[in-house]
Amino acid sequence: MSRSGIFVVFYFILYLLVQVMLFKQLVLFNTAFCFVYVVFILMLPIETNPLILMGIAFLLGISIDIFYDSLGLHAMSLVLVAYVRNYLLATITPQGGYDAGEGPTLASNGLQWFLVYSIPLVFIHHFVLFFTEAGGFGVFWFTMLKVITSLAFTMTVILFLQYFSFERRR
C-alpha cells in the first residue's frame, strides 16, 4: 500500500472515532449537530477516482451508521456528497488550475474559495440527512432549523481544523 493509502486509512479511523466518541455527544440547543466526518471526503486529493471516492464515502457512512443505529442514512448522504464533489471542484477551478498533488484545502486555495467549496457540500449532506431521517417534509421548519444550525456548527469546527493544520504546515 502506498504512503497516501496508509494516510487515508489512518484519517478514516481517526474521523470515525472522533465522530462517534466526541461529536456524537455534542449537540447544542438540541438542534445543532456536528458531523465533522464530512470533511474527510472533502479533503481527499482532487484527482481521486470518483468510483473510489464513492466507495470510501459509502464505507465511512456505513461505519458511522452502525454507531448511530441508522443503517443507510449517513451512507446515503455521504455518497451524494462524494458524487457532487468532483462536479463542484470542476466548476470552481481557480485561475491557473489546482496544484498537482494538493488536496482541496484552505491552505492551498484561500478562505473564499474554501467556503464556496465546503458550504454547499456540507449543506447538501445535512439537508439530505435530516429530511430523510424525519421521513419527509412533515416538520419542515424544525428540520430546516436543524439543518441550518448544524451547518453553522459543522462549518465552525471544519474551519477551526483547517486553520489548525494550516498553521502547523507553515
Binding site: P50, L51, M54, L71, G72, L73, A75, M76, V79, L80
Partner: peptide, 13 residues
C-alpha cells in the same frame, strides 16, 4: 455506481 450505492442505502434504510 452512484445510483447503485444510493439504492442500496435506501434499501438498508
Amino acid at each position: 455506481t452512484f445510483l447503485l450505492l444510493e439504492l442500496f442505502c435506501a434499501w438498508l434504510l
